[in-house]
Nucleic acid binder design. Structure first.
Lengths: 239, 239
DNA sequence: CGCAGTGTTGAAGCATATCAACTTGGGTGG
DNA sequence: CCACCCAAGTTGATATGCTTCAACACTGCG
């Protein structure tokens, strides 16, 4: 069941069989949620954390004027609110952007894990630290990249992250988000997002139709995005 | 020497005397750095992590066109590159924005700590998770707040964080950054940052002169910023 | 004294938001 | 089964926000 988590962790370090067993025992319940359903409510204090087994979810914040900003995109294998184990109360909500299959790990069990499995603890810690690195990359993109470069950067990032969990086919991957949702990721209006997308299409580097992104010119995409993958920490090394 | 770190951690949870002792033994060397000197170089793989004892530093990224984006501001008590313990290679540089006094903890000692001190490990983990929460708040500010609200939000955040380590006096605090640096935080041009600042001054909510911010109308500032402090996790509770 | 860094101002141009209208496709109820 | 409707994507026009460029004032410092 928790294979995507294991793929995710194995992209950073090796796991012992014992550790894989501990992981599989950690998730006691699972659940399916519908599109647009909240996985975690802003302000709540859940006594468990949520692993995304299948689907795409987003961490988001709604402003007083009703506008929304998405601060993270989660894919299969992401421990979407592991940080709630430390932080207790959720400062953001998490919503299912597609139908999702999720599993839960109780914070009490996670606490025991931190006392008995230091290596797994460090790997869990690592995943939250990589989340932070992705946040920083988004800050850079929002502050100092053109909108076209920002969008290109997002596509690069999603491609590599999806590749780790085996969700890419050649140079394409499924991205079943609406343009409204993408605009909420980039902090743009829908109208402008649409025109930015058309810019990339006209350049011939990618298409995005039928909820599927196809990359025609990966090198050019990297160049437009000024993309450097080190922040994703895809090297396997002892942690 | 490491008092600001202890103040910082104690704003989230209680520490035992033993833990305080472990902490003070963790930092074996210290150093002073000059303004504009790099504390950590982008791309480096330091075998230690750095605690900021005094001064202000910033995590930053320089783009190909020479523009710069600051992704985090560190103050006394911040473990500025603790995440490098997990992540190994630095995806950003860290620069001293004022003269800084720093101390070092070897990653080998941190590894031992994760095997022997699960509670301290969770607290260290917590500080990196709060860093991520701050990053998310910045993403929201960049994407969906007006520039005036963004600046106001930053002032609120810095005030509360500085208060924890005793660096505020009444409703004012020292902020010895240039407008160029502030612009690199907000992802703005200097010219527009200047005008945004004047907007807040004209509203009578704050002044910023002689490298010191003075807040006249805290409630109004909160309102302009749409500020909610939960992401800073300033409540003391068991972690 | 002159020079460099910092803050400030105004003008012109580009980027992005907002508003409004139209298209398309799939799903649904009459 | 068809007509309709609604969500999603697209387009153009206008308004606003932000950048860039250029100039100038002020300060501390060699």
């Amino acid at each position: 069941m928790i294979n995507p988590l294991i793929s995710n962790l194995k992209s950073h370090d090796t796991l012992t069989l014992h550790e894989e067993k501990v992981l599989s025992r950690l998730f006691t319940r699972d659940k399916r949620v519908l599109v647009d359903e909240d996985i975690v409510l802003q302000g709540s204090r859940p006594p468990f954390s949520t692993l995304l087994l299948e689907g795409i979810s987003a961490r988001y914040r709604v402003m007083e004027d009703g506008s929304r900003q998405i601060t993270a995109i989660n894919i299969a294998g992401d421990f979407v609110d592991l940080h709630a184990f430390m932080v207790k109360t959720m400062d953001h909500g998490i919503v299912a952007l597609t139908p999702c299959h999720i599993a839960f790990a109780d914070h009490s069990d996670l606490k025991i894990l931190t006392e008995q499995e230091p290596h797994l603890t460090r790997l869990f810690w690592l995943t939250t630290v990589i989340d932070a690195a992705i946040h920083r990359e988004w800050i850079v993109a929002m502050g100092r990249r053109t909108k076209k470069a920002h969008l290109a950067h997002l596509v690069c990032e999603l491609f590599l992250r999806l590749q780790v969990v085996g969700l890419t086919i050649g140079r394409s991957f499924s991205l079943p988000l609406s343009q409204v949702e993408l605009a909420d990721v980039l902090g743009l209006s829908v109208v402008h997002l649409n025109k930015t997308l058309q810019g990339l299409r006209k350049d011939g580097v990618l298409t995005w139709a039928d909820r599927t992104v196809e990359i025609f010119d990966w090198d050019r995409l990297l160049e437009i995005a000024e993309f450097d993958a080190t922040y994703l920490n895809l090297a396997v090394e002892p942690r």
